[in-house]
Amino acid sequence: MYLYLPVALTSINVLVPVGLGLAVGLLSGLFGVGGGFLMTPLLIMFGIPSTVAAATDSNQIVAASTSGTYAHWKVGNVDFKMGLYLLAGGFVGGLLGVQGIKVLKAMGNADFVIKMTYVLMLGIVGTYMFIESVSSMRKNKTQEVKEERQSAAGRFLSSLPMQTHFEKSGVTHSALIPIIFGGFVGVLAAVMGVGGGFLMVPVMVYILRMPMHVVVGTSLFQILFNCIEVTFLQATTNHSVDFILAVLLLLGSTVGAQVGAVFGRKLKGEQLKVILAVIVLAVTVKIIFELTLPPALLLGQSGGH
């Protein structure tokens, strides 16, 4: 059955967005990412204009991450305190990032610099995550050695002021750490035009040293608020949110997020990390291909990324 999308000004087979929603929602519930890296290009492939695809995806993520946060919260895997600190940092970072884009654009060649930074960062993060999680899966018992290696950086982190205990995550940090790193991811997300889940999850795992299951829930909580903000801004400034498309997507993604959360509980933290690392690396390769292979069409609709 086909439905007409009033803002995208195109018609789509309803099975397409429902199916896409289901798949991306599953990833969301499993790994705590928004899934925009997958959803936006697929929607464009099905004829949705790029601005509408990006804006409507944020609207859909609001539903998927609500569903996912709820599922993780039920089993005590959302650290609200940490989430709020990250959000505070992310909010300021987002504002700085928007200004940053203007500066980069004025300097010229901004897209090149942005894309290269993003590819490099995804590549490094993905590789590190992959190696680290595989090796810790192999030698589960030598973890004490690893912790000692971290202690120099650990000492520095614990010497910072405003130390506070995060009960759900079972870690003690200076409140400045999540705010600064939340801000850092916020800047990058704004500059790259992506949600930032791929960078936020590794930050929580490796820098904030939170348990993987709490990372997923907390990341979704944080994404939820980001996407509310983005949806509202897109609706009011670009008029590019397609409500009908969002509803079709969320029919799949809210269910997918629940299934993902249930499935994720059956996997060990290390296993989740390995799979996420593989996905991050796959996305890196995909972007490299996109950058190097000649595109089928040299022209595209204006706006979006």
Binding site: A63, A64, T66, S67, F243, V247, T254, V255, A257
Partner: peptide, 11 residues
């Protein structure tokens, strides 16, 4: 609001 409600509803 519709997205929030749908997310909670499915939860």
């Amino acid at each position: 609001v519709a997205a929030l409600a749908a997310g909670f509803g499915v939860g």
